[in-house]
Write a protein that binds this DNA or RNA. Structure first.
Lengths: 155, 155
DNA sequence: GATGAAACAATAATAGC
DNA sequence: GCTATTATTGTTTCATC
């Protein structure tokens, strides 16, 4: 991976686009105090390098019909690479899954899910996790709230 | 909250913009098979209603200089609303913090952080979490991998 | 609700400084 | 890196269906 140090302008571009990915290049340039051609070239470079890895809309999960969120900790029975990879792919393909963390520690995965109601959660826990051969045990915690940090660009 | 049922077109708009928030309206319309004016009106409506809650660039944390990620479980000493809210606000304001989950169960918060190296993690754990009065104990798990699910629009 | 056309605005590529 | 120019592409409005 080609690593280089990002300067202040780069970091500001990242921060602005983290907070609003639909900023126009013109507006972005104005906020940075640089010419639009400069902002565009910087942004394209960050995309090329993979530093800007994607742009995603944030959807209100409740409005979408899945108001109940949970974190499911999953411990696998054995640690063999095909099992670990298969589990992760399986989890990511479920429509209820929002994100998947592969962790060290007591459990192997932490799966963030959004469901319609408690019965949907129960069914998901049993069918998508407990029933799988590679899963030793799961532990489910409900989510009261989930917030992303706001980027400042001044670290 | 004004709740209504989203139709297929709405759900497709959400899915497309979740996967690529910078899709032009023209391209979005072409993928849905509707006129650009239609796609625009639908998207604006979803924004007005809060279903589309924001647009965020995804930044490669390693490329940004913070290649080490962790999940910090935080248990608070007592559960009083001002304490809980103060802790959450504190966590969200830290530059190392990516996202914060407020959960039920053994711990109260799960904090996703990205740091430069193990020493930075140790320092963050001590100074930003352990040292705080309202914190009873923390447990830190390293992250091997973190993936967001891809939206399909066909649930 | 959805449409197509027209007016307006932004982007991308290029050249010169 | 900036400015300026230009061709291309995208956005937004609105009368109409």
């Amino acid at each position: 991976m080609p690593q280089r140090d990002l300067d202040r302008t780069d970091r500001q571009i990242l921060a602005h686009l983290q907070n609003n990915a639909r900023l126009s290049n013109k507006e972005l340039a104005a906020r940075l105090g640089v010419a639009p051609s400069t902002a565009l070239e910087r942004t394209r470079r960050l995309e090329r390098e993979g530093v800007l890895a994607g742009y995603h809309a944030e959807v209100d999960l409740a409005a979408r019909g899945t108001p109940l969120q949970a974190l499911v900790s999953v411990s696998l029975r054995r640690h063999q690479r095909p099992l670990v990879e298969a589990f992760q792919a399986h989890a990511l393909a479920l429509p209820e899954v929002v994100q998947v963390f592969h962790t060290t520690g007591q459990s192997d995965f932490l799966v963030h899910v959004a469901v319609r109601n408690p019965e949907h959660l129960r069914q998901l826990a049993l069918e998508a996790f407990t029933d799988r051969d590679e899963v030793a045990r799961i532990e489910t915690a409900l989510l009261f709230d989930h917030r992303r940090a706001v980027a400042s660009g001044e670290d």
